[in-house]
Design a protein around this nucleic acid. Structure first.
Lengths: 362, 362
DNA sequence: CTTAGCACTCGATCAAGTCGAGTGCTAATC
DNA sequence: GATTAGCACTCGACTTGATCGAGTGCTAAG
């Protein structure tokens, strides 16, 4: 717990350094942050703050830079979140609204918007459904022995998979089998399909369709397949800490390989919470000099994804955190409008993106 | 037309510079490229090559660097294409084979593989169908007034679009309407749907479904929507010419904004040809110091896309060109196996990825 | 036409010197 | 005891000058 004055100084150091990326001098603080004491006094305080581990000097007789501990204190007690200007909020909502009906688009849009407002790289994972439930499927005969299984899930996502069709199976056979199975498998999860189709009698074609269905659904429940969108690499390259190429290379490498990003996702807490990892709190070496702000969206249960930003330690937390929160909220709303309850169950409403009352599991 | 000896020198300069990115000295040439004449003679020849515009010195008394003209001469007359090692070819085929049934995957894989073998950034555009033809569609009622139209095209791609369903329309209504329409609209292009549905009598629900269908198909035929995959940014950042950050930034910026990439696509010639643009042949300033190698894949007519690499002027053309050609061929084969003719029309074959005889339009 | 020899050019690298921002400390002041 | 003016000191950033050597162009001889 720091004294009032030390807090003011620490806060000013973090803010100034976040803006300029240059060690902060005592006189700058006095001049630009309305300090009523002299620079000498500030220097004394800074020396103590350094002894306590909140700031440090890159070399003797230079200004001060916040340490990880300093950033953490700042985020937990000092920072005031800057709300997005009303106009900006509306613009963003409007942009989402325009693509609300195309899922891929709004995931990508989420990353793009977040990157822009938070001035850092943004990542958005596609929502994962804990146990995908069948809405409808169709098995189509494409050519030769090639068939296409198209599966629509209750959350509105569509998956497809080419399959090899057994000799002598016609489109009529497939349609008939699909028709019957659609009736009996509606709203079933993979496990339920597995259980249900075991006991009943099935024709050969039905068996084939079920096998294909199970295979496709197995892929869905496989967490390694989550697609992760990202944007804002340029924002990072603009930051002086990535001028080294060395580090720039590492970041580019990572953002291009979704596998690494995926491993960030499971750690994010359920619920409204926001996870902030600063420097060494991160699991990988290449991230020791980075900070991430992550939030979950969706109902945090049946269907959820993660949005977040990734940047240097001197992330503009005051902007990044509310932005992440805001985008997560918008995406939750969008998701609710599609997934959630079936037809007629939830009360009608104007058009999802504005009015809001949470609808839950199906 | 250059003398035999000048050609040998130019070829050596290009190859050496491609490898090392350092101005090439006359002695290096003599030492490492089995020249039988002395370095002084080579210097004389180089002076002439410079006067003729094939090479130049970055500053007086430095080695030589190929000019754009030099690269062009090299590509057109001097270069020998290095075939991919047989083992590598098999590995690549195998990788594609593994994901052959998932379209998105193999597009991304194409970019990844190309980036790796050509040691440059790779781009792959998703195949565009000149006039998409309907295979099957389904209109599903999701919740409240929200419906989901799922459309499968004859090339095996699947598109979806959320729509607002008119008051009081049930899933039964939608299914019935879709059922009837599926029968009459099978294999139709957008224009044909438009023409066909004009005269017939349609129920209100059918009209609604047709409207949604037309809207979705309009999006498909819109070239601005082509998705472009890319990979291999890291390969670029490793090259010394992008060490400046300045240029690195520009490249990253461009590869992150698909809009720019899309504009590269229309220029690529139909057929088996490969388009090579070196330096100032490119349309944009940021590409004046880059070279691209592009090829079309698909039947080059009804359904086609583009693959290519993007790198510094000193691209390893001898490797990049055959690689691009090879990947384009594989992707053409993959495409043929799905799109093309309908069931039963083309002769059966083992499994597309190996045997090959072109099947054409549907 | 080829080539040995040599003067010359010019970037790269290093050492020395200067500048100035910013600190820590001391001693005087409130 | 807390604050502050004053000042010596530190250290990176930048400049300058010198040196080195790779590589050329030219000349004159073979």
């Amino acid at each position: 717990m720091l004294s009032e004055r030390k807090e003011r100084i620490l806060k000013a150091v973090v803010e100034e350094y976040t803006r300029n990326a240059r060690p902060v001098a005592s006189e700058t603080l006095q001049r630009e942050y309305g300090m009523t004491v002299s620079s000498a006094t500030i220097r004394n305080e800074m020396a103590e703050l350094e002894a306590e581990g909140y700031i440090y000097q890159p070399h003797t007789s230079a200004g001060r830079i916040p340490s990880e501990q300093g950033y953490r204190y700042f985020v937990q007690r000092l920072m005031q979140e800057e709300r997005l200007p009303r106009a900006e909020q509306l613009t963003i909502r409007h942009q989402f609204h325009q693509v609300a009906l195309m899922r891929e688009e709004w995931l990508q849009l989420g990353a793009a918007v977040l990157a822009r407002v938070a001035r850092a790289a943004a990542i958005v994972s596609a929502p994962v459904v804990s146990a995908s439930r069948i809405k409808h499927f169709e098995m189509l005969h494409m050519q030769d022995h090639l068939g296409l299984l198209v599966l629509v899930l209750q959350d509105g996502s569509v998956k497809q998979q080419l399959v090899t069709v057994p000799d002598g199976t016609s489109q009529e056979d497939l349609s008939a089998a699909s028709g019957r199975l659609n009736a009996s498998l509606h709203a079933r999860s993979r496990a339920e399909v597995l259980a249900n189709t075991g006991k009943e009698f099935l024709t050969r074609t039905e068996q084939f369709v079920v096998r294909a269905l199970l295979e496709l659904m197995a892929q869905l429940d496989n967490r390694d397949a989550v697609t992760v969108y990202h944007d804002g690499l340029v924002e990072l390259l603009d930051q002086p800490e990535f001028a080294s190429l060395e580090r720039a290379r590492a970041i580019v490498e990572v953002l291009e390989r979704p596998q690494v990003l995926r491993e960030l996702l499971p750690g994010v807490p359920q619920g409204d919470g926001i996870q902030i990892l600063i420097g060494s709190e991160n699991r990988w070496d290449w991230m020791k000099e980075c900070a991430v702000v992550l939030a979950r969206y969706g109902d945090g249960n049946e269907v959820t994804g993660v949005v977040g930003v990734l940047g240097p330690l001197r992330l503009p937390y005051g902007i990044a955190i509310p932005s992440v929160r805001y985008i997560a909220r918008i995406m939750t709303e969008l998701l609710d409008d599609i997934g959630g309850s079936g037809p007629g169950v939830s009360p009608g409403r104007a058009n999802g993106l504005t009015a809001r009352e949470s609808t839950n599991d199906n």
